[in-house]
């Protein structure tokens, strides 16, 4: 096989994995605080739409990304209100978020279907892009990809090395105990939900602004659910999330390059691959992690005190 093709496919792998990485890292933060948010797919869609729309009206993709994050965080706020204040079932509330987010992004997005956006372009990373092969793969990407390289470190540091991170994890592991020792669990969990939603929204905005550069309804196409599965695969570890995200980036890039090469395999069969891979990856990860299921307070609401 030609080395150029390998390099190009690997670079495409990084790019395809990046939106999934943002969403997976976002969901890790949320789940670390003890809240399951199954609305990732819906939040990514809102992020993608807000990113596209704000870039369109301001002409500034940086504002677009910010808008994508804020849009998704606003949707996450609904989840925060329903599960933290109204004690709603986290699974059902999250599903509602996905339905609502899908509806909203298509509702607002329909008039713009097919419209292009300039968004983010690839730019060489000064110096590093000159390294043979490595530079071509990792350092001829767009700025959000560069940001995603350091993001896992930031999140690991925030969650594992700061007091706030410790408190968030306490709210996720032992909510009752955290409350007894004077922590405001509701506040900590809402930080987890909103922070996670914001990152998820950036992942969505990446799709419209840096990946497709064009608005289509439903462009997230299950990536949000893949991210939910990857949290389990990553065992709530930001660094393992990178491996998972690039694995899926790889299958997507592979599928695209196969389609471009004019293969005989029907496209609907190729499109199934990421979903089947998700099931496989989840199954293997669940078997190996059997018995240890992430934060102990995950998915359980903290009942209000009488």
């Amino acid at each position: 096989m030609n080395i150029d093709i390998v390099v190009a496919t690997t670079a495409a792998t990084i790019q395809a994995g990046t939106p999934i990485l943002f969403a997976t890292l976002g969901e890790i933060i949320t789940e670390k605080s003890g809240v399951l948010n199954l609305g990732v797919e819906g939040m990514m869609l809102i992020g993608a739409f807000c990113g596209f729309f704000i870039t369109k009206i301001t002409g500034n993709p940086y504002l677009g990304v910010l808008g994508g994050g804020i849009g998704a965080a606003s949707l996450a706020l609904l989840h925060a209100i329903s599960v933290l204040i109204f004690q709603a079932n986290q699974i059902v509330s999250g599903l509602a978020l996905t339905i609502l987010g899908t509806g909203l992004s298509n509702f607002w997005g329909t008039p713009f279907v097919g419209e292009k956006t300039l968004g983010f372009q690839k730019m060489d990373f000064i110096g590093l892009s000159k390294i043979p092969i490595i530079g071509d793969i990792f350092f001829k990407q767009d700025i959000l990809v560069y940001f995603s390289y350091i993001l896992p470190v930031i999140i690991w540091f925030l969650l594992d090395k700061t007091r706030l991170g410790l408190e968030i994890r306490a709210a996720g592991e032992f909510p009752e105990g955290a409350r007894s020792s004077g922590l405001n669990v509701t506040f900590l969990r809402s930080l987890g939900i909103l922070g996670g939603g914001f990152l998820t929204g950036i992942g969505g905005a990446y799709l419209s602004l840096a990946y497709t550069h064009i608005w289509t309804n439903g462009l997230v196409a299950g990536r949000g659910w893949i991210a939910v599965a990857l949290v389990i695969f990553a065992f709530w570890n930001p660094f393992r999330a990178v491996i998972g995200a690039y694995l899926f980036g790889g299958i997507m890039a592979f599928q695209l390059s196969l389609q471009a090469s004019g293969t005989q395999i029907p496209s609907s069969i190729l499109l199934m691959l990421p979903y089947i891979l998700t099931i496989l990856v989840l199954t293997i990860a669940s078997k190996t992690h059997k018995g240890s299921w992430g934060p102990m307070g995950l998915g359980i609401n903290l009942e209000p005190k009488d």
């Binding site: 978020l97 339905i99 298509n106 509702f107």
Partner: peptide
Amino acid sequence: EAYGMIIQGMILIFVVS
């Protein structure tokens, strides 16, 4: 058409809350 999904999502989140 997506308006239907908005209503459904709203109903679900309100009911569960």
